[in-house]
Amino acid sequence: MNIYAYIVRRLLYVIPILLGVCAIIFILFNVVSPDPTLIMLGKHASVEQMESLRRELGLDRPYYVQYLDIVKSAFTFDFGRSWSTKQEISSMIANGAVPSLTLTLPAFFLATLVSISISLLVAFFRGKFFDKFIVFVCVAFMSISSLAYIIFGQWFFAYKLGWFEISGYEHGFPYFIPYVILPIIIWIILSVGPDVRFYRTVMLDEVYQDYVRTAKSKGLSDKIILFKHVLKNAMIPIITYVVIQIPFLILGTLLLESFFSIPGLGSMTLNAVNSLDFPVIKAVTVLSAVAYIIFSVITDVLYTIVDPRVRLN
């Protein structure tokens, strides 16, 4: 099948999926969630005010009209304004996505690079002391709560040693750099444990394959086997693991952003949930669903590039 036809077909799946997502959002909001007007009006709410607010928000309209509203905004990407902050949601997302990405993109890229390199080394030394040591270190790193790294890192490296900014953010290149270095390092430390364990398993699966033995018996060096053959063959699970995480990088990272006062999207979603800010919740859910679909298509296409045996149909 032609790759373009495949992409178009997969992207068309967006339509039924989005309709489903809208239905879920609608049901959760109307059936499970408490009345948002009560939260918005706060401690001095009155029945009349709640009714009046419901009318202004359009919550008194028939259910099907409200559902169609959600569908409309999901397909036009026009999510209107936040109920809580009255800000335009598209600009809230645009303003928050950049700081989030300045932290998560380099952090994710570096963490993946470091983890894959370590796991290649581990595959090379499999079963030896180095392998066991790395696995031990990974498990040890993973056993400590992420909050502990953040609190210690901020206190020791930023406050005690003064190497980094304690918290804050400046918009624009290169001013943001001093503020994101420490969170990036912490992110890498947090990700290396689980990532190395995953990549190690992937590499070891490959190392014991017949083609590795064949290559060895042909007299190829370990380096060539690892980089040219093992890494290439391990690419499919690696791509699946890596690409599918990318859309979520935009959503930022709640704890790091909150401790380092980085104005990203991490806390936007949490604030929206806490204040029942339905338009923002709707926007984040719809965008995540769309991004997930797009990136899963990218993953499929990448499969065909790294492994010509994969056929898209």
């Binding site: 901020q154 206190w155 406050y159 304690i166 918290s167 804050g168 401790f259 380092f260 006062s261 806390s267």
Partner: peptide, 18 residues
């Protein structure tokens, strides 16, 4: 006006005179 939601960065920033 700095928006600092967590206590630790607030405290450390105060202690550093920021």
């Amino acid at each position: 006006v700095n928006i600092m939601k967590e206590e630790q960065p607030r405290w450390l920033s105060f202690s550093k005179g920021k």
